[in-house]
């Protein structure tokens, strides 16, 4: 008698507890897809550029990397960053990152909107193709 109620209760509980997971996938809320840079966008002055670190590292740690760059550039007056692969990059949001990812709406904001984070970079830093005030 009470066994049936308990099992039914458990099922209801499981459904409610896992609701966010299956609802999101059912509603088509898949992971955000930031636009990768176009192939030709990666070649400047005859040199091909790769991202400073690999994609997995950048996805998880770009905020720490940028924070670190900021401190090294502004506070220590340093200029270059040596990647894990041993390549040198100028530590600059505008001169390095934005070369391949020029539009925040097509790249940064895709994940930031999804994750509901609003970094204040663009209050001061300027996109290469203009300066129209946008969402964040």
């Amino acid at each position: 008698m009470s066994k049936g109620i308990i099992i039914a209760g458990l099922i209801v509980f499981l459904i409610v507890a896992t609701f966010p997971v299956w609802y999101t996938s059912a509603a088509g809320g898949s992971r955000p897809q930031p636009e990768p840079p176009a192939r030709d966008a990666k070649v400047f002055e005859g040199k091909e550029y790769r991202c400073v670190e690999d994609k997995v590292y950048m996805t998880g740690n770009h905020m720490q990397l940028l924070d670190n760059w900021r401190n090294l550039v502004v506070r220590e007056g340093e200029r270059f960053y040596t990647s894990e692969a041993g390549e040198q990059y100028e530590m600059s949001l505008t001169k390095t990152c934005l070369k391949c990812h020029p539009e925040r709406d097509r790249f940064c904001n895709k994940c930031h909107d999804y994750a509901n984070v609003y970094p204040t970079c663009w209050n001061c830093h300027v996109e290469l193709n203009g300066n129209e005030p946008k969402g964040n």
Binding site: V73, G77, E78, R79, T94, K95, L98, N123, C124, H125, V126, E127, L128, N131
Partner: peptide, 24 residues
């Protein structure tokens, strides 16, 4: 606006930095 150099926002103080970005 020159994109290579950031602007500032309302509520901060600024001054000459001997062009730190050029010194670099």
């Amino acid at each position: 606006i020159r994109p290579e150099y950031p602007t500032r926002m309302r509520g901060v103080v600024e001054k000459c930095t001997f062009c730190a970005e050029r010194l670099r």
